[in-house]
């Protein structure tokens, strides 16, 4: 079998995950896209393990380890997402800007930002 098939599938899957991480707003969907990227890496590991006929099976064992780490990551990530939801009643990643720097002019946030966000901030705190 050509090595190009698994590597190209993994590359496409990885870029789909990149799109999901950058474009999605819901934190759980971002976690799902991270899972897609991790799976692309797993596919590469397995393919190169088979390609080099590794006697120690380093690639496949590392794939098992990556799967375990992904499970731990999604468990912790969901706990954090639930904590954010409990405190703010929303899980939109682009509205979690409590640590962001102030925008340039104070008149601009006064004009538009409070209209959209101030009621929510009040409700969250």
């Amino acid at each position: 079998m050509h090595l190009a098939y698994p590597t190209v599938v993994a590359a496409l899957l990885f870029s789909v995950g990149v799109y999901g991480v950058l474009a999605r707003r819901n934190a759980i969907l971002v976690l799902m896209s991270v899972e897609l990227m991790l799976n692309a890496v797993n596919l590469n590991l397995v393919a190169f393990d088979i390609r080099f006929a590794d006697r120690l099976h380093g690639g496949q064992v590392l794939t098992l380890f990556t799967i375990v780490i992904a499970a731990a990551e999604v468990g912790l990530g969901l706990a954090i997402v639930l904590l954010v939801y409990r405190n703010r009643r929303m899980v939109d990643v682009d509205r979690m800007d409590a640590l962001a720097e102030e925008r340039d002019a104070p008149s601009v946030p006064a004009a538009e930002a409070p209209a959209a966000e101030a009621p929510h901030e009040e409700a969250a705190r």
Partner: peptide, 25 residues
């Protein structure tokens, strides 16, 4: 509102990533 406002930028970045990776592979 599941997609944020920068989805076209994200699509561009993802297409560039896919092009580079697939070409290299």
């Amino acid at each position: 509102d599941l997609d944020s406002g920068n989805r076209w930028v994200a699509a561009g970045v993802a297409l560039a990533t896919a092009a580079v990776l697939v070409t290299v592979m």
